[in-house]
Every structure is written in C-alpha cells, then in structure tokens.
C-alpha cells in the first residue's frame, strides 16, 4: 500500500522543485527517482510478500511461484495462528507484562530522576553514575543469578519475573533521559514554588510531572519497543508455554509447525508487524525522534 502512495509524494516533490531547463538535469533527476523508488521497494517488498503469503494455502506455497498473489483473501491462516498457534495467548501475556513494566519503570524512573537532578544533596552524582553505567551492561550479566532466585522462589511459574526484570532493565535509560529533560527546566521554577511554600513532593506532582508530559510519552515509546520486542529475558524466565510472550511464541511457532504449515506462520509474523504498523502510522514522528534521542543519549 505504501508503494501506491509513492508517485503522489514524487509528484508533489517535483512540483515544488524549481524548474530546470537543461536536459542533463532531467536525466539526473530521473536516475535520482529510480534510485529512491528502488530504496522504497527494497524496504517494502519483503513486507508485502509476507502479507501475501499469509493468505496462501499450503498448496499454493508449494505449487505456485513465490511471487504469485494469493487466490483468495480469507482469514483461515490468521484464525489458525491465533487459536492452534497460541498467538492469542502470547499476545495476552505480552500485554500483561508490558503495561505494568512500563508503568512501574516510568513511575520509579521519573521520581528518581527528579530526586537526582532537581533536588540538591551530596552523593547524587555518584548514584546517577551507578544508574547510567547500567545502560552498557549486557542482559547476560544478570541472567544467571536472577534465574536462580526466580526459580528457587517458584516465580518462574508466573509472569512476575518478566515484569520485575523489564522494570529494572529500563530504569537506567529512563533515569538518564529524564535527568536530561529535567536539566532543561530552569531551576527558578522549582525555587519559586518552594518559596511559595510548596514541598518537594508537592512540586514533583504539581510541576515536575505535568512539565514532563511529552518527555514521558517519548520514553514510554522507546521503552515499549524494547520490552515488547525482547526475546532474551522472556525466553529465560518463562518455563511454561502458557506464559510465553509474543516473541517466544513466534520463535517456537516455526519449531512447532516446522516446514509444514507456512500460512499460519506467515499470518503470525504479519499480525506482529501489522500491530506495529498501526502504532507507527499514528505516532511515526514521535517514534522516530524518540528512538533517535534515546540511542544518542544512551
């Protein structure tokens, strides 16, 4: 569908550009647009091919060439992926893990950043450094001890290990980015509130959080992708398939059906990608700037 809108964008672009008389410029311009068309095609065709595959029957996969369009657009594969493929359960688990993790991570992270950046006390730089250092440490470094503890306490039969671990793994970046955002607010704002008799806790909820609304949305988006798309933690800390998140389910999907049922597998991947596409259609500006900011600071 994105391909169809390409000529529109091209048309408006060339209309806006100043008119160039020379023929050589015209050829260069054509080459330019061919290259750009190719670029868009390379990015979009795999997704288009995947989506088409998700409507094909097993028979079509084997007997028709790979670029053939599906014979019908019925949703059998999707139903199968969600029910026998357990994708519906996986989606539910992912939601049950992602929402509380994001909420806790942001609540704890914003409050900590406020205490570390706005408030003035000895030792705050050292603690900030301890948080920020966590950004570099790979997840493998905490896997073994946490698995031991979660397993012994019986928590691996629940989704709690995922919620707890994601919350903590997201804290370093959240604290780091939030301190940077708080630094951009003039100190006088908080000092004036204090002179008016507001306590620091009061200022946090009345001034800090409202001023940080956009920053919080940015961080929530960045962390949403890292939690929702994680495989390592979800794979390690869930022992039952009924607790598998979307990524774990997807990984095992290919194993379960192996080389036999392509349709449901393609449908399952498509559901994952379509979900992100919907989010992306609405929030692409925020997502692009947010992810870029999150990585440069990290």
């Amino acid at each position: 569908m994105a391909i169809q809108t390409a000529p529109v964008a091209m048309a408006t672009a060339s209309a806006r550009a100043p008119r160039r008389p020379s023929a050589r410029r015209g050829i260069v311009g054509t080459i330019k647009w061919v290259l750009i068309g190719l670029l868009v095609l390379v990015e979009v065709y795999p997704l288009f091919w995947l989506l088409m595959g998700s409507f094909k029957t097993q028979d079509e996969f084997f007997s028709k060439p790979t670029w053939a369009l599906p014979e019908s657009f019925d949703l059998t594969n999707y139903v199968q992926a969600l029910t026998t493929g357990d994708l519906a359960t996986n989606l539910r688990n992912s939601l049950l893990v992602t929402v509380p993790s994001l909420f806790l991570m942001i609540l704890l992270g914003v409050a900590a950043a406020y205490a570390l950046e706005v408030m003035v006390w000895k030792g705050r730089n050292g603690i900030l450094l301890a948080f920020v250092a966590g950004i570099m440490i790979p997840g493998q470094m905490i896997l073994v001890p946490l698995f031991t503890v979660y397993f012994k306490s019986g928590l691996t039969n629940t989704l709690w290990p995922l919620i707890i671990t994601y919350t903590v793994m997201g804290l370093p970046l959240t604290v780091f980015m939030m301190t940077a955002f708080f630094r951009a607010i003039p100190r006088e704002v908080f000092e004036a509130a204090t002179l008016d008799g507001s306590s620091m806790l009061g200022s946090f909820f009345r001034i800090g959080v409202p001023l940080m609304r956009n920053a919080i949305i940015t961080i929530a988006l960045v962390e949403f992708f890292s939690v929702w798309n994680d495989l390592l933690i979800a794979l390690t800390f869930t022992t039952k398939s009924s607790l598998a998140t979307v990524q774990v389910g997807l990984l095992n999907f290919s194993g379960e059906y192996g080389s036999t049922e392509y349709g449901p597998l393609f449908a399952a991947i498509s559901i994952n990608i379509l979900g992100m596409l919907v989010l992306y259609l609405f929030l692409n500006k925020q997502i692009m700037t947010g992810l870029a900011a999150g990585s440069l600071k990290g």
Binding site: A111, F131, G134, I142, P145
Partner: peptide, 29 residues
C-alpha cells in the same frame, strides 16, 4: 531542595529495586 524525606520517598524505591535486581546480580555473576 535537600529535603531528606522527599529524597527517600522519590529515589528510595527505584534505588532499592535497581540494587537488588541489577547491581547485586552483576556482582554475583
């Protein structure tokens, strides 16, 4: 601005879980 109680309430929970779930496991590992 240096209110100890406020610092404890705001930073305490984050620091506690971060220490237990990240710093201790890293040292343990």
């Amino acid at each position: 601005l240096g209110d100890k109680k406020a610092i404890l309430i705001l930073l305490g929970p984050a620091l506690l879980v971060y220490t237990l779930i990240k710093l201790v496991p890293v040292a343990w590992s």
